[in-house]
Design a protein around this nucleic acid. Structure first.
Lengths: 325, 325
DNA sequence: ATGAAAGCGCTAACAA
DNA sequence: TTGTTAGCGCTTTCAT
């Protein structure tokens, strides 16, 4: 039963509703003894402020919307959790929207969410900048893992870790390295590819680019044949899912990892740890990502200035890669 | 800008606010020509009803709360998506709460959610019935994948599929089958174990029970040694994650799957399809689960009677199991 | 430090 | 079919 209101409490104590309201929203404005009584009976009655009434009065809902492109992609659940936990710490709840496979619907989803929340956290690697910006316009928002002109963002930058991975393979004696590119429309994919290309310029190892791929498991599996054909002995996959596909594909062709070929993924999703051998990959500080995202959004909502934040991914070496040297 | 209200529209058209309100909530009560005008200017002004005002007035928020124990467990993301999609179809949004590793907090999460939603969808395999029931009391709720005295539920029953899996292994010539039990406190775990035990009673294959385990990947991996020691050549794991662990553990010990040992998991999570060889498992109709859950909750909220719904899992044979015969 | 009163945007009788 | 009038529960001036 959600029956207790500030009025029932007020009546019970012979004070006014405003006092009860203040006891919660501006505790400093209420005499200690009174406040204690109020809190006590609130407790006893199981009172919880009605967020909608509060929202109506203040214009703040205590809700943020989180848009993810595909919650089924193992990269996102940890992100969702991190955000939700960070939000809970600020007494705000998270309205989740999953774009599903058809990213087409994202602007519509944003439209639906925006009316009910204080602000939006948007992870949308594929939708066009223009469409995204138009959909977001007028709503406090911060973008996750993507830079979008004029909007605050928090991203994890894997450039250094990826280059380190490439260098590590080169140091291990690999002369030809295959880069499996992610979706052409993906912001992260182009960043990652760029990082590796930049590395290759200063290296005497040879870079072979394959793709772009949709970045599904089967894409990686299929690509194995091309990798083998290319003669590359080291592979940098756009993400872990593709990397695991490559592992499977390599096994299909009887190639041993890491003896014949080394593989490195990106994101360090659950899969990376459950595959055999465990996948070398680039790990992102997801909890930090969540904290920063929520905090940045809070600032935007409050009208404060926000700086874009950039977190660093780090190389995690596991079983799909041989010792350097 | 979320500035347009029913009043701005009313004023603009020279009608009353109630008429505008009706145009949206009870369209049939408004003359066609007028409604069209209203809808048109609403459109033009970018009007969206304020859900909080509406919630205050009606007591309905258009929000449902979804509690999952661990969104990082690959079983849940598809469930979340299914529920969210089903909800979107009814113009309701989903407030997500993730209990995280420490399921302890679930009653607290429920407490936090209940005040802001029309009803709760609860997936909580581990929390005690008593605690759960107390936390839920007074809030419309339906329980997912668990039966809870007095509360409506929608569950997927894997009994038949599991027995079929066991029988399949027996038919393939396996004389000794290991059952890796899930967490003792898990409702699903006890159901699954029971199914297999019941099957064993009528079979002349021998059943070896191992566990209970926490059902993490490493539990399965570790259990591989015991499986080998037991002499079992077929294994039924509580879930896919453990099954994949078993696969890894068996590989550690140089055993071939499915040549030496057959393995069957349960749930058909993404992992099952990306492991090599692909895991034979039991597949649940998740989208249906979501639809039924949302619909059942809608009924509870509306005060209508609801029947518990039981969906059937089905056996999916893949590479970790040999042809019968 | 506290109370009175207005108002947030919407819905729901009740009248007309 | 439409308008009037009260609220829904809370916050927030403005007085006191």
């Amino acid at each position: 039963m959600n029956r207790a209101t500030i009025y029932s409490i007020a009546q019970e104590l012979g004070v006014s509703a405003s006092t009860v309201s203040r006891a919660f929203s501006r505790p400093d404005l209420v005499r200690d003894s009174v406040r204690e009584q109020i809190v006590a009976t609130a407790q006893r009655l199981g009172y919880q402020p009605n967020r909608f009434a509060r929202g109506l009065a203040t214009g703040r809902t205590g809700l943020i919307g989180l848009l993810v492109p595909d919650i089924t992609n193992p990269f996102f659940p940890p992100v969702v959790r991190a955000i939700e936990q960070a939000a809970a710490g600020r007494d705000t709840d998270v309205l989740l929207a999953d774009a599903g496979v058809d990213g087409m619907a994202e602007p519509a989803l944003i439209e639906r969410l925006r009316a009910q929340v204080d602000g939006l956290l948007i992870a949308s690697p594929r939708t066009s900048s223009a469409a995204l910006k138009e959909a977001i316009a007028g709503t406090p928002a911060v973008v996750i893992n993507r830079a979008l002109q004029g909007l605050p963002s928090v991203v994890v930058d894997n450039t250094a870790a990826l280059q380190q991975a490439a260098q590590y393979m080169a140091d291990s004696g690999h002369r030809k390295i295959a880069l499996l590119c992610g979706p052409a429309s993906s912001w992260a994919a182009s960043r990652r590819a760029k990082a590796v290309r930049r590395w290759a310029e200063d290296s005497d190892a040879e870079l072979v680019e394959l793709g772009p791929f949709e970045a599904q498991f089967d894409d990686g599996r299929t690509a194995a044949a091309d990798i083998i054909a290319s003669g590359a002995t080291g592979v940098l996959a756009f993400d872990d899912l593709m990397a695991c596909g490559v592992l499977a594909g390599l096994a299909d062709h009887g190639r041993k990892v890491p003896d014949d070929i080394s593989v490195v993924g990106c994101d360090d999703v659950l899969l990376a740890r459950t595959v055999t051998p465990a996948l070398s990959t680039v790990t992102a500080p997801i909890d930090e990502l969540g904290r920063h995202a929520v905090q940045a959004l809070a600032q935007v909502v409050a009208g404060e200035p926000v700086e874009n934040v950039k977190l660093e991914g780090s190389l995690t070496l596991r079983g799909t890669t041989t010792p350097a040297g």
